[in-house]
Design a protein around this nucleic acid. Structure first.
Lengths: 186, 186
DNA sequence: TTTTAACAGGTTGATCTTGACATGTCGCGA
DNA sequence: TCGCGACATGTCAAGATCAACCTGTTAAAA
């Protein structure tokens, strides 16, 4: 039930199409709640049927512009007030670190190097997003800025952590009888 | 396809029951890949049928002890080598921050305070886990220590970030015409 | 002018995940 | 000895999610 609230939030800030939304779910909002267009289009139909959004215009190529209705904003508010947040994180890339011991040290180091590259890329994206956009225009974007800031710190943190993990692995953590990971070096 | 690899990893380190596993998925491994027992039991049956784990013993109350087979470890290794990591993060609690603008400032501050409490609790859990367990016993636990360390940094980061966000909201970020979130204070 | 890539909207089937239901065991305290 | 709570294993239906498929449009490069 989170996808619909993400859509209600985005369409409250700025009217846009399903195609635009899917791009938001590929970047900014997708950083905390990923979704494919195959999930978005049916949800837009449902939200329209429930009166939480309306189609306010159309463009070339059958493009449909949607906007959150006052009832939609009220539904979003009710969700924020009346339901408990789900604090569970799902992150496959980190689950894999649990399994790093199956690889020999050299492969594990290559693995971590690939991860690091990915995290550095995300960090750059975040910093670019912060620099490029006007975050003061609307209350919705000012709230989004809070989440983006978390993203920036999150990826900064990941890069630092993976450098630490790399040191650990290089020191032989993944070998039987290697050094204890509890000894935090560096 | 990640649940099975989490199970293979845990059962490679220490033979245990579905019940034990579900507790691992409620805490340590659940921090990056949550799973309910209703998902775990059928998966154990499938893994057994495929020869990736075996039942090596039983205990009171019909308790079944499983262990990863050499083929299971090989499957885990193949997964780590041959498939690309999914770097997508799913985190509902942060999606909600996007929607914080629907609440008046006082409610938003209360909302953040509740989140902070939750994150501080998680951080304590992490620190306790690091202190309590013997992380040098096996390569599997030494790899797990790497992820736990990320968890510690992650929740430390969240607490710091939410303090920053609280300042922003207190300064009027969620009100139209409020201060720009791009001005990083404190 | 042709072809390519991005735009745009959609469906479908398979798989994953959740929450609720269901059953029974064992140890401990009242 | 009675009842409770933790232990322990499962199933099932509903809903969420994803990958793949499908159709058609527009702009710009070749």
């Amino acid at each position: 039930m989170s996808l619909r609230h993400g859509l209600l939030d985005l369409l409250a800030g700025e009217p846009m199409s399903g195609y635009d939304l899917s791009r938001y779910f590929a970047v900014s909002m997708g950083n905390v709640w990923p979704a494919q267009h195959s999930q978005i289009y049916p949800e837009l139909a449902r939200l329209t049927a429930e009166g939480l959004i309306t189609q306010t215009g159309e463009g070339p190529r059958g493009r449909k512009i949607y906007q959150t209705t006052p009832q939609g904003i009220e539904a979003l508010r009710a969700w924020m007030r009346d339901s408990k947040p789900d604090y569970q994180v799902r992150y496959e890339a980190l689950l894999r670190i649990f399994c790093l011991w199956v690889l020999p040290t050299d492969e594990a180091l290559a693995y971590l190097a690939r991860d690091r590259k990915e995290y550095a890329r995300h960090l750059e994206e975040m910093e670019q997003a912060i620099a490029e956009k006007d975050w003061g225009a609307h209350t919705t974007t000012r709230a989004a800025r809070l989440t983006i800031e978390f993203g920036r710190r999150f990826y900064t943190n990941l890069v630092e952590w993976i450098d630490w993990a790399t040191e650990q692995v290089a020191a032989g953590t993944l070998q039987p009888g290697g050094p204890l990971p509890s000894v935090t070096g560096g």
